[in-house]
Design a protein around this nucleic acid. Structure first.
Lengths: 186, 186
DNA sequence: TGTAGCATGTAAGCCGTTACATGATTGA
DNA sequence: TCAATCATGTAACGGCTTACATGCTACA
């Protein structure tokens, strides 16, 4: 205990906790990466595979997860489950740790700031391209949302997904307006 | 040339470029930190002081900025200006480098995902607190926006600031809706 | 006289990435 | 049999933070 874990560790622990209340088969590092890619990446970061394996090793060392190993030829596959101590630690983290304000790394906004160093058509094209990518992301997230349905068990993941969808819609509208603004007096 | 700089380097170079077209007094590392804190932090990250000094040393080494040193007792103060090569490098970066999709690290959304591990009142309180902090941020950003006015020179920074304001407004609305949703069937 | 703000830097270390290395299983 | 997918890990290193160390200037 008194573990000093990163937020990413707790995010992974959260994914393992969802597994424990649904299938409870445990998750391999590989599967955890897939879940991160499909959900976590929308509002946190999807860690690299190597990072996930590193975190799982660390979480195991402090007893927050437990692997069940199965031999496969000369190779071992590990399925990880959250432990009671791990769940307690997650609760503790949610209750006591400071909630940081979100951090946004927005390359499009950063470049727009320097729009006077670009051709106006380049600026407009950059914004239009961003709108298209937002639409792609939205499709992916809608897929996640649809898979959650309206069941009580997924109430919170559904809220987060709806939040994300509304965010993409708002961002699209705002950037659309900026594109219009580029059209005038350029 | 063919410098391998981080986005943060170019962000700082961008701030120095704005200085060059306004006062052109050059900026100290300390002043650069202040500008980062007041503007950059809304859509990128405000680097630590030590990071800024490190970047300035690096940018100077590759000739993208140039310091003018003045002695103060046994201490040297350096005011940095962007060089012609630096401006060229910034142009090059804007024209040729890939525009990454924004990355959001959103601790509030991450925690909401695990709302089933918290008391409903705690969840609501967390969301309400976030809305208050959004309002604070909005005030800060509105200050920045007001200082930019409607002059052509600050057209792009003004667009970015307006973007940020619209984003905060949308985020506030969305989270307000989530709070209402917490009220029902909790 | 002491403290707040201006100003500059080094050192240790964490978090996370990319690159590299390896092996098992399934299906075209 | 070959490629894709499942699966696990190490090594090197970059970017950034916190902690630490130091000094000048203005003013209450």
């Amino acid at each position: 205990m008194a573990d000093n874990l990163s937020t990413t560790s707790y995010a992974l622990l959260g994914l393992l906790n969802f597994d424990s209340v649904t299938s409870n088969d445990g998750l391999t590092g590989y599967e955890l990466k897939q879940r991160s890619d499909s959900t976590l990446r929308f509002y946190w970061v999807s860690p690299a595979m190597s990072q996930i394996y590193t975190e799982l090793t660390r979480l195991n060392r402090v007893g927050l997860v437990k692997p069940i190993s199965t031999r496969n030829g000369r190779r071992t596959t590990r399925r990880y489950r959250i432990t009671p101590v791990g769940l307690q630690s997650l609760h503790e983290w949610l209750r006591t740790s400071e909630v940081d304000f979100p951090v946004l790394k927005h390359p499009v906004a950063l470049r727009l700031l320097m729009g006077h160093l670009m051709d106006p058509e380049e600026v407009t094209a950059m914004l239009a391209s961003y709108v298209r990518r937002l639409a792609e992301r939205r499709v992916d997230l809608q897929g996640v949302r649809d898979s959650l349905g309206e069941v009580e068990m997924f109430r919170f993941p559904a809220m987060v997904a709806d939040w994300g969808l509304a965010y993409y819609d708002a961002e699209s509208d705002i950037v659309g307006e900026l594109i219009r603004r580029m059209g005038t007096s350029s």
